[in-house]
Each structure stands twice: as C-alpha cells, then as structure tokens.
Computed example of a mutant assay.
Amino acid sequence: MNRRTTALTAAVALAASLALTGCSSSDDKPHLEVSGAFIPQPVMDMAGGFLTIKNDGDTADKLTSVTSPLSDDVTIHETKDQKMREVTSFDIPANGELKLERGGNHIMFMELKSKPKQGDKVSIELHFEKADPIKVDVPVEAPNHNPQQH
C-alpha cells in the first residue's frame, strides 16, 4: 500500500505541475488582432490584400501563410526598391505590429475563382508560426481605395 500511495502522490504532483506549466505557457503566446483589412475590387484575375496585425503579447510571431476560397494560389509578398517578391513569412514583433499596405508588403491572390465586387466580403484565414489561425471576412473596396490617402 505504501508503494501505491507513493505512486499516486507522484502522479498527482506530476499532473499538477503539467497543469501549472500549461497555464503559464499560454501567457507566452502572441496576442494578435487584425484591423483595417480590405481588398481593392480586382480589375484582372488577381487581387491584393491589405491589413494590420497588432501583437499585444510579449512573444513575437510570424505570418506564415494565407488561405482563401477566393484562390488556391495565395502568397505573401514584400516590396523593396519598388520590386515585389514572394516571401515565406513576415515577422510580427512582440508588442508591435505588421502592416500590409499598398506600395508595401501585401497578400497576393492569383488566378481568382471569381471577381468580388465592391461591397462584397472575402473570407481569408491567416496562419502563424505560434498563434492559432485567424479567420477574417475582408471587405472589397473600390479599385483605387487607399486608406493612407484619407
């Protein structure tokens, strides 16, 4: 019986320590929030996507991909020296933000399955290195929409 009690005590202690570890590690996750998302109404069979991801957490993260029913070919691009190129991820700093905006880094939707019109919404899902995916219904704006000019 003594051996059984010791094993039971050890099991309870292990379970308690795992539970405590689980609680503390959740505070180490990034705290991400998406705002200002929009897609200009496409005029060709491709479209750009723009948004801001704010991280209120003490842990940095990375945007690693974007998926959408609008296209099977959704990529993320950086713009440097007026040239764009596909990248595998974007950093989202701890207590900082990632801005995807016209003339800069952005989401690219290629070979659109349909052409959404101004006023429609497009569903996207953002995928991260650490945080859980975030689904966003992105409004389609006028082709020349640029919130930086307002």
Rank of each mutant, 00 (worst) to 15 (best):
Asp28Gly: 04
Asp28Tyr: 08
Lys29Leu: 12
Lys29Gly: 02
Pro30Ile: 02
Pro30Glu: 01
His31Pro: 01
His31Asn: 14
His31Met: 10
His31Cys: 08
Leu32Phe: 00
Leu32Ala: 00
Leu32Arg: 01
Glu33Val: 04
Glu33Asp: 07
Glu33His: 09
Val34Tyr: 04
Ser35Val: 03
Ser35Glu: 06
Gly36Ala: 04
Gly36Ile: 02
Gly36Thr: 00
Ala37Glu: 03
Ala37Asp: 04
Phe38Asp: 09
Phe38Gln: 01
Phe38Lys: 04
Phe38Asn: 08
Phe38Glu: 05
Ile39Phe: 10
Ile39Glu: 09
Ile39Ser: 10
Ile39Val: 15
Pro40Asp: 11
Pro40Glu: 11
Met44Val: 14
Asp45Ile: 15
Met46Ala: 14
Ala47Cys: 14
Ala47Gln: 15
Ala47Pro: 14
Gly48Met: 11
Gly48Ser: 11
Gly49Ile: 10
Phe50Arg: 05
Phe50Asp: 04
Leu51Arg: 01
Thr52Met: 03
Thr52Asn: 01
Ile53Gln: 00
Ile53Ala: 01
Ile53Gly: 00
Lys54Pro: 02
Lys54Met: 04
Lys54Phe: 05
Lys54Val: 06
Lys54Leu: 04
Asn55His: 00
Asn55Ala: 03
Asp56Asn: 08
Asp56Leu: 08
Gly57Trp: 01
Thr59Trp: 03
Thr59Tyr: 03
Ala60Met: 03
Asp61Ser: 00
Asp61Leu: 00
Lys62Arg: 01
Leu63Val: 00
Thr64Val: 06
Ser65Met: 07
Val66Arg: 06
Thr67Trp: 10
Thr67Asn: 11
Pro69Arg: 13
Pro69Leu: 12
Pro69Lys: 11
Pro69Asn: 13
Pro69Ser: 13
Leu70Gly: 12
Leu70Pro: 10
Leu70Gln: 12
Ser71Thr: 14
Val74Ala: 09
Val74Tyr: 13
Val74Met: 11
Thr75Met: 13
Ile76Lys: 02
Ile76Phe: 05
His77Gly: 07
His77Tyr: 13
Glu78Pro: 02
Glu78Ser: 11
Thr79Glu: 11
Thr79Pro: 05
Thr79Tyr: 06
Thr79Cys: 10
Thr79Gln: 08
Lys80Gly: 07
Gln82Met: 10
Gln82Asn: 11
Gln82Ile: 07
Gln82Trp: 06
Lys83Tyr: 06
Lys83Asn: 10
Met84Asn: 09
Arg85Ala: 13
Glu86Ala: 12
Glu86His: 07
Glu86Cys: 08
Glu86Thr: 15
